[in-house]
Nucleic acid binder design. Structure first.
Length: 426
RNA sequence: GGAGAGGUGGCUGAGCGGUCGAAAGCGGCGGUCUUGAAAACCGUUGACCCUCGCGGGUCCGGGGGUUCGAAUCCCUCCCUCUCCGCCA
């Protein structure tokens, strides 16, 4: 959520900055509601003050054994007007809040202009796509040929966009999770977290998935209703919801492996082949909660932590700064890391690292105690995939394929693979 | 699943329907004392909203209700704890 003060104070500027996202803010509607809200709030507070004063007087007179009837008559007249004003104020607030909750974050000044991914800016590139002396296959062909990847079977069990892995591929999938968690906890100073996969609506509102993107989520309705998490960002970031973090405990750095569940509504026909876009996938997520002045430095750090995994796995990648029009709802700035996929002859997203500034913190009421001002102030939150496990597996299969259909195991992963150096059909 | 108890400020914990945003203690901050520290003593110490300011309003798990007036009464939901049952 944007700062309501900013919206009240400089609505045109907010609209201008949001226009960079290709978003039109209904400024006349907002300023009209805001003007009404102010009027009604002032009037309501006057009436409340009046009532409070008189009610206290009644208490006093009653205690002294006086006659309260005349006072009661006076205050009775207030009731209706006050109730009407309170009701009106409440509905105005609700209307404003509803709008505010669907307004995206303002792009940081360093975010490039542009409407879609064609305007994203490559900031660095690492590694050379290997020149293979044969026509590369994609991970589906390779995995099925190995007899260790089965989409038909998964479709029978669940439906489209699910996968069954077996044997060494299933093991490598698990090894990747272990390897990523170890790297981030040992080398990058993150605290490992285990968190719920089912969350409530408040948490999703906190990180920005609700109310606008309910269609992307799986809802579980039993006696209580829950949502399946679309990313560990939701439970892990919400750790600090409604809390005031001690300055000495900052920055908080969490790493968490979870499955992620996405309905992929609206992406029909996209990436229907293979493991690229699934309803269920594993991800290792990095989350940081930092002091506002450090958040852009933290974004660079966090992004480099995610890149480290690709370097250790010796997978060629590039990092792009998303343009204003291509960023997610809550983000102020985002880097995507894209890994080279020989099967598609393309770089494909494998991680997305974002600084949300205080956008999520305001929704969550996540604060820290500033020792300078001694006041609670909003934290800045960040997160990034470190990495998407399924896509990492895909990248390894495709980049390490051999002419005979075997898959070389990256050396960084071998300690986690019981020494296996090549995956072959069994 | 059955029976019971409870949710109050950073923490512990009081609180007759009427100057209660809330006693007290702890913790925090400032000070006195001390070579320094500890102890002791004194003072101070919730959040949010409107306002240039004065000032005002809201908040005692969430939501609704009763009342001139609710932390206190009623309803409902959520959460925590204890006992019994079941169970990975």
């Amino acid at each position: 959520m944007l700062d309501p003060k900013l919206i009240r104070g400089d609505l045109d500027r907010v609209a201008r900055e949001l226009a960079r996202r290709g978003m039109t803010l209904d400024t006349s509607k907002i300023s009209e509601l805001e003007a009404q809200r102010k009027d009604v709030q002032v009037r309501t507070q006057q009436l409340q003050n009046d009532r409070n004063t008189r009610s206290k007087a009644i208490g006093k007179v009653k205690a002294e054994g006086g006659d309260i009837a005349p006072l009661m008559a006076e205050v009775a007249k207030l009731g209706d007007e006050l109730a009407a004003n309170e009701k009106r104020l409440e509905s105005l607030q609700a209307e404003l809040d509803a709008i505010l909750l669907t307004v995206p974050n303002i792009p940081h000044s360093s975010v490039p202009d542009g409407r879609d991914e064609t305007s994203n800016v490559e900031v660095r590139r690492w590694g050379e796509p290997r020149k293979l002396p044969f026509a590369p296959q994609d991970h589906v062909a390779l995995g099925e040929a190995l007899g260790q990847m089965d989409f038909e079977c998964a479709a029978k069990i669940s439906g489209a966009r699910f996968t069954i892995l077996k044997s060494a591929l299933a093991r490598m999938h698990r090894a990747l999770i272990q390897f990523m968690l170890d790297t981030h906890t040992r080398d990058h100073g993150y605290t490992e977290v285990y968190a719920p996969y089912l969350v409530n609506a408040d948490s999703l509102r906190g990180t920005g998935q609700l109310p606008k993107f309910e269609a992307d989520l799986f809802k579980v309705s039993a006696e209580q209703s829950f949502y399946l998490i679309p990313t560990a960002e939701v439970p892990v970031t919400n750790i600090v919801r409604d809390t005031i973090t001690d300055e000495k405990d900052m920055p908080l750095k969490f790493v968490c492996h979870t499955p992620c569940f996405r309905s992929e509504a609206g992406s029909h026909g996209k990436d229907t082949r293979g493991m690229i876009r699934q309803h269920q996938f594993e991800k290792v997520e990095l989350v940081q909660v930092v002091r506002p002045e450090n958040s852009y430095e933290a974004l660079e750090q966090l992004t480099s932590h995610a890149e480290t995994i690709l370097r250790k796995l010796e997978l060629p990648y590039r990092t792009v700064a998303l343009c204003a029009g291509d960023m997610g709802f809550s983000a102020a700035k985002t880097y995507d890391i894209e890994v080279w996929l020989p099967g598609q002859q393309k770089y494909r997203e494998i991680s997305s690292c974002s600084n949300f500034e205080d956008f999520q913190a305001r929704r969550m009421l996540a604060r820290w105690r500033n020792s300078q001002t001694k006041k609670p102030e909003l934290v800045h939150t960040l997160n990034g995939s470190g990495l998407a496990v399924g896509r990492t597996l895909v990248a390894i299969i495709e980049n390490y394929q051999q002419e005979d259909g075997g898959i070389l195991v990256p050396s960084a992963l071998r300690p986690y693979m019981n020494g296996v150096d090549t995956i072959r059909r069994q």
